[in-house]
Design a protein around this nucleic acid. Structure first.
Lengths: 209, 209, 209, 209
DNA sequence: CATGAATGAGCGTTCATTCAT
DNA sequence: AATGAATGAACGCTCATTCAT
């Protein structure tokens, strides 16, 4: 009998082993030869686990995104205030630890592919992310509205806020400028406008959801 | 001196003649052969006016950006309300006429390059745009604050708002979703929060700039 | 001994199971993977029964040729006239039923291999076919001569006639031209020249064999 | 000004320089690298003169065929008897000089391609050859009929005779067997059947064309 | 004995850049 | 100055064959 391999596991292993390569060189830059070398397998082997080069890139993006989603959900559930929950949701765009910076780099590469050479799969994946995150964001806002902590009108800001988070990623290289810091202070500034002060809460008649 | 002027003129001519080519195919896609064909010059000639392929791309981006800047300034000065001025400033991300869609496509390609294969020049250029537009935006806001039409705190939203505008461009292909529409309604929703109603104006003590 | 018999049996089984695959895709086109899949065995197993890819191809050709030979012999013995016998002998090149067309396709592929990448084995096999069929053809002719139905000189046409039959297979794709029809009418035209009319038969002194 | 090259001339030069390579290795076997090496040009250069690999093969076939056609026509016009004219027409399949053997090898490779991996262009080219040569053959026959040297019925043999000539090429490797010799003796045997003897000529009423 | 995962040489093709004219 | 013919490194991908299990 030939060696039995768990195809999915090996797929993930190959993809995972390349993450650093993709972070260093961007998604489109590494050649199949480099990927094979990096994963310590033969060039041909790659093609028994992936349809083509794009498929590898996609696999990596999927893995990373799934990991991130889980972290985000866990992190949201562990924070209390609405503002903190929102910052957790956008930790990709806000955090400054090494892990976050790596992740951001990958996400930016992913967006870059979506912008320049989009495939149907990529675009659908991108849409899924958008829908998922704006829904989570809406849920957080709704909760805040229910608890009369923020105004009803804040709900209108959900889509825009998501766009803001994406937007701050677009300037990743400018020195002395962290797009990333902007997001946090923008959220704080927005909250000054939408938060209901303790005094006002009693009178507030913002309706219910 | 005349020589250099001519050289620059020719540079612009070559670059300009290729704009449609780049819009159709994206920035990285056209080959030097296609560019030369399009500009009706020899392939080798291109290299007397441009360092390399990237240099051509950069030249086109510069030309387009300069044209756009002029239009924006003119358009801002022709509108009255703050909200309208802001929409004019972001017309690249909002307008739906053919010309705007073309321009958007090019800008998105430019961003994609900045994200995936950035050169120092590209990044500096991108930063210049950011600084320029946030300054213009700030000026508009300041004017509004001076006229007591909007709250002083709105100034804090400038950078975030610019990011929002960039962010809505990141989903150019999703069906039934126009990132573009999101920006306008986001601006309108924000204004509900920062505008000073007629009644309030008198009491408003938002301070001066 | 039993082992070897079994080995040969399995060889035949594998080869036979692939015939349709080879008809559909041509001889050189199917990959070893496809062949293994088709034969429902492992890729490696193929190499315990066949030296290499060419060996499989050869096995199939042999099987098919043996089947065809049997049919031809049976078909010849069941027809009466010389002309009919000859047409039976060349049924590969003449018949238009589905089975014949399939067979023709395979034979053409075989010839193509003999022409472009011949191995000694292939060439010998091809020669065997030639010798076998021209002998059978000669026998039919001799019988006709004996019965004074055709002229003695017809014997000289045997080799050429075999070549004609091969030659009509060389244009399998030309529309509105069926090489295949040409063979039949060529045989009929030849017979007008070599047949001995009823009147002439008595006087005919064509000699005996 | 860049070097001015006669594109068609260079095309022919490259193709011609490869003829020996193709004769030695067959048409499909040489790689682009080998072809480039052989032609003493860069690999990329090939693609400014040929669409793709098939295009090179086709070009060589065309060149060779054109040369051959000219020779055949000239050779036919220089011979007297019908039989000799026909042998001239089929000199590709009959002659045994070095040049003819080379040519035969190439033609056989061409046929092999037509049989195994035919493109529309190849098939059309093959058809053109067939039509051209059967027409020339028919013309020769008609002339012979007009001069009452051969029987009217010979015309029916034209297509079959062409097929015979092709067919003898199909056994190019069998030792001690020259398919090639077969054609000549076949033609001679046929002529015994279709020629009108001197005595008969006067009585012959074979009709006119 | 049977397997199929692993291999890597080899393929045809592209295209930014060079440089002789 | 202007040209475009020439280049060749580099690419993604295929597939017959091997060999550890």
């Amino acid at each position: 009998m030939a060696k039995i391999v768990n195809k999915n596991k090996k797929r993930d292993e190959i993809a995972s082993s390349c993450i650093n390569l993709f972070i260093e060189k961007g998604f489109n830059k590494p050649t199949i030869s480099e990927i094979a070398l990096n994963a310590k397998i033969g060039k041909g082997t790659i093609y028994s686990y992936f349809k083509n080069k794009e498929d590898i890139i996609f696999a990596i993006i999927e893995i990373e995104q799934n990991n991130y989603d889980k972290e985000v959900l866990s992190s949201i559930s562990q924070t209390q205030s609405i503002k903190e929950k929102i910052c957790s949701l956008f930790s990709l765009c806000i955090d400054q630890d090494k892990e976050a910076i790596k992740r951001r780099k990958m996400y930016i590469e992913f967006i870059s592919i979506c912008l320049s050479t989009p495939s149907i799969e990529m675009i659908q994946f991108q849409e899924n992310i958008k829908v998922k995150y704006t829904n989570w964001l809406r849920d957080i806002f709704k909760q805040g509205i229910k608890e009369k902590k923020i105004k009803l009108e804040s709900l209108e800001l959900v889509d825009g806020l998501f766009a803001t988070a994406e937007g701050v990623l677009m300037f990743p290289y400018i020195e002395n400028y962290s797009g990333v810091d902007i997001l946090k202070s923008h959220i704080y500034s927005l909250f000054k406008l939408i938060e209901i002060g303790d005094k006002e809460r009693e009178k507030y008649k913002g309706g219910t959801l």
